[in-house]
Design a protein around this nucleic acid. Structure first.
Lengths: 332, 332
DNA sequence: ACAAATCATCAAAGCGCTTTGATAATATGG
DNA sequence: CCATATTATCAAAGCGCTTTGATGATTTGT
């Protein structure tokens, strides 16, 4: 930049103003500067700019390896995120927390992270301390998923209580009365909320709630779904349908049921959550609640950007969901 | 930092040296500084540091929306990438190129990107100009996948010619002679290489190559697989097996075949590429060539980091692959 | 005990940009 | 036609850190 200024015979600040447009620069000078800059292959140094402006246009994206491994979810979320971020000229700095890895280091990064203008966090757990810590640090952030103490924390999420309600209700409407629930891990707020909805649906239908029929899985993967299904069956309790908290879990559970000689949906109906490719590919295809993941991503990105830019924001932002009826629940 | 220096009664540079360790600082002073820093909640400004050191510890990750949408692939790649990057204290700055989006803007970013120490690029196409352009720019980069002109370009990839060979060969060993090939898009180097391997396997087995039996898909998704299968069948040529260039394509193709009343694997055997969850979940499960995606990611990350840090690197880095025999190809 | 080596610290310059008060030149208006 | 407003430009300070030459205080070797 200095070189350009010299070659063009103007001051350094003039060159700067040519780019920022914050000061009027005469046309001939402007053109001259731009020409020389092009000749020299000038490339503004964004780091220096950031230092001067205290603005990086970078958003820290804090993911658990959990969420990254849930491939379809993550990739669609990312699509929503990048769609709006690209438009607004922001980019994401990836931080993946490995489960093995010490959580401290990971959160340290958040706290050190002066390179980002704001932060998006995923997968809040119940009793998760870190969010409160970030709140102390004076940096814009939004979380994807409901934090356990959501008071005045900006977040975007589905109404998971309603998801649980809708899924269960659909099974009830189909005539089921003995409905099991293979839930996600116990320490996720999602799991808690869906359980609430499940209970509400039962209550409304006058079906007694049986604690044993609710199984908490350790993760969201297929094997765990099969394992949960096995635990469920070992109880010896009767059930004619299962509400499963994730498509992958459902696939695992369904395979297990079939392996045990149970017919889906004839002997056990299934409603799952998440409309990933696999849910429509598998046979029988899964009836699911479609979480609008891309919209969640887009909303989260918009929220954090608005916040960074000082706009008034309203939160939480609740994104809708739809029931998609397919084969696994039986005829509708 | 200045404040700390004042409060501790030492100079600014002393404080800096406490952190960098590039100069010996007496223990008492060191402790005093650290104590005050902690009290004040000091957080070093990484942007300023980067400006001074000309080092950001950030790697630009340039993705096509294609690769992001291929969820399982992407998420496993990312796992490999972050695993080694975390260890080496690097992070990724995400740049997703939307297909609709003007490619120019996207590449501009690469060229402007003074915030990154190096760059990883995915999905090279045949005749892709951009790689040559980046080469002119004096920044470390590696590409994932073979660039069309790979002379002296650092890249990591599978030996796709061998992938094509192995898959085809497996079918030949099973007794097939009329083997179709549903390939990926024509302008990918991957597609070109796999075709080479396919032909070599046929040649070795003395099976004539029939051009019509090779179908190029427009993308890597299910619908396209079905569409390619339909194109294939409309030709009216006989075939007893198909080598499909991706698991998703294979799922689509298989569904189409089944819809047409053809039995898999009895009437048509299938070997696909990519060992994603869906390939083992679907019924019949897919025989696939497992590309070691996580290792590709890890290797790419290691390569770029080594390059950034001035180490001697050897390239290209070719990662292995394994045949996983399942049901779709028939008994082995 | 004294020169030489080492240790601990400081001051100042520099990284490449933005921002702003000042100044000179030009335009506007009554 | 002169006072005021506007336009175009410059110089200098500052963003928060690293780096290095210099300096005084200690230690070491002989």
């Amino acid at each position: 930049m200095k070189d350009i200024a010299e070659r063009a015979g103007v001051s350094l600040s003039t060159v700067s103003h040519v780019y920022s447009g914050k000061r009027t620069i005469s046309e001939p000078v402007k053109r001259q500067v731009q020409k020389i800059a092009a000749e020299m292959g000038y490339r503004p140094n964004l780091v220096a700019k950031s230092l001067a402006t205290k603005k990086t246009n970078v958003i820290g994206l804090y993911l658990s390896s959990q969420s990254v491994q849930d491939a379809p979810f993550f990739s669609i979320l990312l699509k929503g995120l990048t769609l709006v971020a690209n438009n607004e000229h922001y980019r994401f700095l990836l931080n993946v927390r490995e489960s093995e890895h010490n959580e401290e280091t990971y959160y340290d990064e958040i706290h050190k992270g002066d390179v980002v203008d704001g932060v998006i966090i995923t997968d809040p757990r119940i009793g998760d301390m870190q969010i409160e810590q970030i709140q102390k640090r004076d940096i814009p952030f939004v979380v994807i998923g409901r934090p356990s103490k959501q008071f005045s924390i900006p977040y975007v999420d589905t109404d998971n209580e309603d998801v649980g309600y809708c899924a269960t209700n659909h099974l009830i409407n189909l005539g089921h009365r003995k409905i099991a629930f293979i839930n996600g891990p116990k320490d996720y707020t999602v799991s808690k909320d869906r359980l609430l909805g499940y209970r509400r649906a039962l209550l409304e239908a006058g079906v007694p709630y049986i604690d044993d029929l609710v199984i908490f899985s350790d993760d969201f993967f297929q094997n765990c779904g099969a394992e949960s299904a096995s635990r469920l069956m070992k109880l010896g309790l009767k059930f004619t349908a299962v509400f499963v908290a994730a498509d992958n879990l459902a696939v695992g559970a369904m395979k297990y049921f079939q392996l045990q000689g149970m017919k889906v949906p004839e002997e056990v109906g299934i409603v799952a959550v998440n409309n990933s490719l696999i849910s429509e590919t598998i046979n029988p295809s899964l009836t699911v609640i479609d979480i609008l993941t891309e919209e969640i991503g887009a909303a989260a990105a918009q929220l954090i950007i608005d916040k960074i830019e000082g706009k008034e924001i309203v939160y939480p932002k609740i994104i809708g969901h739809n029931l998609i009826v397919r084969q696994s629940c039986g005829a509708s």
